[in-house]
């Protein structure tokens, strides 16, 4: 469990890519205040998922509009699933880990 970013770095409803030990993680701050993290690279054609639009459930890749469930990483449009990472907010820091 460790801090990977400050909540103030991610505007409400958007995502940012953060590098953790050489891995690229797209971290999203949902409009209900919670955070989610998934692998940053779209398995379809390598699009930057942190640039996608989100709601409380899904992220839409900006390149070809494929969608993934932010909580499970499951594809919602027939692509491969993506890895999810456990994240939560502690004070104003985003923590990675259970």
């Amino acid at each position: 469990m460790r801090p990977i970013a400050s909540v103030h770095e991610i505007p409400l409803g958007e995502g940012r890519t953060i590098a953790v030990d050489g891995e690229m993680i797209a971290v999203f701050r949902l409009r209900d205040g919670s955070v989610r993290a998934i692998s940053a690279v779209c398995p379809h054609k390598g699009g930057p998922l942190a640039d996608g639009q989100i709601d409380l459930k899904q992220v839409i890749c900006p390149l070809h509009l494929n969608a993934w469930d932010l909580r499970t990483g499951c594809s919602l449009s027939g692509q491969q699933d993506v890895a999810v990472y456990p994240v939560f907010i502690d004070d104003d820091k985003i923590m990675l880990g259970e």
Partner: peptide
């Protein structure tokens, strides 16, 4: 307009880890 509006989202190269104040 927002923090990190123009921060890269595409990991072409491994980014330096974001420093976090303890």
């Amino acid at each position: 307009a927002t923090p990190g509006q123009f921060r890269t989202s595409l990991p072409l190269i491994v980014l330096p880890q974001v420093p976090v104040r303890a």
